[in-house]
Amino acid sequence: MNKVQNNKAWFLVLPVFLLVAFSAIVPLMTVVNYSVQDIFDQNNAYFVGVEWYKEILNDPRLQDSLARQFMFSFTVLLIEVPLGIAVALMMPTRGWTASLTLIVLALPLLIPWNVVGTIWQIFARGDIGLLGYVINALGIDYNYTNNPIDAWATVLLMDVWHWTSLIALLCYSGLRAIPDAYYQAARIDRASSWSIFKFIQLPKLKGVLIIGILLRFMDSFMIYTEPFVLTGGGPGNSTTFLSQTLTKMAIGQFDIGPAAAFSIIYFLIVLLVSWLFFTTITHLDKDKTKEQSYD
């Protein structure tokens, strides 16, 4: 067959290129564009290079909220992942109780985020909220609008309530995919329940857990609505996370340049952490067998 010598095939990629360009590249490049300029009005824009980046990285507001953000995401993962696995392990596997548990667990995931914030804003109030009232009635001084620790606890509790189901449901489906023969073989091998968890269930859950942890990391790292509705970032700045700081800067103060630089840094952090996590996990297996894998 004669080989056709032209590059027409490139045109076939064009639609996808255009789609990606308008959905991702162009908006992102706009932000990059703003982040390297100081703009006064339509006719007065000056190129400033990496000045905004320098300023932003030295901004204590950003540093503080970045620290808070990492603290928050880390704590959330630390609670939600083990809790989700535990819930999944305890869930009934058949009968109507199984369906009921699934529905109940799925409910928090179906509630709009600002509604979740509102629910907890009311639920945790000391005067009219059930949770706040009960805690105060128990003799514990609890007020999430005044006390930073109470505010943190409430935001964490809200997020755990909202998102543990996701990990639980993912793990539940992962657990159901393990054939019975594994459990039977383990019984024959006299494995303890802990060994079954460690050597059968956990390795088989690895795939769904990677997805779950990534999703939870990205979502919690970008959390905005719920704490904004619940605490408004307060008291003080104690529950002001990255996206809220960014919004204040970009929309509140209209500092487009620094806000754009901030956005890029924010985006790169999420990308970097997710990439690091994913490659580390997927390489854990390969590295050990690299020198031996000849098949």
Partner: peptide, 13 residues
């Protein structure tokens, strides 16, 4: 008793 199943059961990790 030892039992060998239709699909090989091994501890992956």
């Amino acid at each position: 008793i030892a039992q060998v199943f239709q699909f090989p059961v091994i501890y992956d990790s």
